[in-house]
Simulated scan of single mutants.
Amino acid sequence: MFIEVDNCHETAEELAAKLEKYARFFRRRVKDTDGRERPMWRTRWTVPADLYGETPHPAVLLFFNHIGERNPNRTIPRLMELTLHLWKGQWQREGYHLCDGKIPIVAVGLKNLREHGPTGPVFFRFGRDRPQPLLEVIGNPRLEAAHAREAEADRARQTEYQAQLQKAAQEQAAKKAVEAAREAAPREARRPSCASCGSRFTDERWEAAEETDWG
C-alpha cells in the first residue's frame, strides 16, 4: 500500500494528478532476473499470486488530516469523478466488479482513525457505498464470494456425476448377474446329485465323474 498524506491544502485536481503518476508508475515494465518482462513494482515488492484472473495494483491510501481550509468531504467526490478511469472495475453479471489493472484508491480521515483504530470500519474505497475495515477494503469480497459459489456448484455437480456413475455401475453389475444366472439355469438343472445324501455335485466332482464315465 502506498500512502499519500494530505493536510487539506491541495485541490481535487492536484490529488488526481498525483494518482495519474501512480498509474504511470504501475505501468512501467522492466526485465526481471529470469529475463522476462514484468511490471517494475512487482520486482521490488513481494506480491501474492493473482487470483480469479484479476491483477490489481497496490492500493493508494489517501490520508486526510484536516488542517487546511479544504473540506475532504467535498474534495473526495470530485476526486472520484476525476479518477474514475483509474479505479472503476468492469461489472460482471455474476454480481461483482473485475478490477483487473485498476488501482484500489482508499480514503481515511485522521479523526475517524483515532476514534476507531486501524481495524475499525473507517476506510472508504472509491466505488463502494460504506466504510470498511482495512483488510476488507483492499480485497474484492464479491469476486471471492462468486468464485466460492462457483466452486461449490462444481463440487455439487462432480458429486452428482460420481453418484450417477456409481448407480450406472451397480445397475450394470445387477444386469450381468441376472444374465449370468439365466445362462447358468439350464446347466444347473443338469447338475447331478449324490445318490446317498442328495447334495449337488461340485463343479470339480461333476467334471471328474464325466471324465471317468462311472455311470
Rank of each mutant, 00 (worst) to 15 (best):
R70M: 08
A151R: 14
A184E: 01
W214H: 12
N73A: 11
D6M: 11
R114Q: 15
G35L: 01
E207D: 12
T119C: 10
G109E: 10
E94D: 13
P48L: 00
M80T: 08
L165S: 09
E4K: 11
E210F: 04
L51N: 06
R44W: 14
R27E: 15
T46Q: 12
E188N: 14
A23R: 12
W45F: 14
E160C: 03
F201I: 00
M80R: 14
V178W: 07
E160T: 06
A185P: 04
V47Y: 05
P118C: 00
H97P: 04
K31D: 13
E183C: 02
L84H: 10
D6N: 15
H57R: 10
K88Q: 11
A23N: 07
A145K: 09
G215N: 10
H116G: 07
A189D: 06
T212Y: 05
S193A: 08
K175A: 15
D213Q: 12
F2K: 08
Q166R: 12
L98R: 13
A59N: 05
E204K: 10
W87L: 02
V47R: 03
R149L: 13
E136G: 08
E204W: 04
P58F: 00
N140P: 03
H57I: 01
T55G: 07
G117P: 03
A163C: 01
H116P: 05
E183V: 03
T202M: 02
A145D: 07
R125I: 02
W206I: 02
Q170N: 12
A168M: 13
M80Y: 05
E136D: 12
K21W: 08
A208C: 02
T46K: 15
A181D: 03
R205M: 05
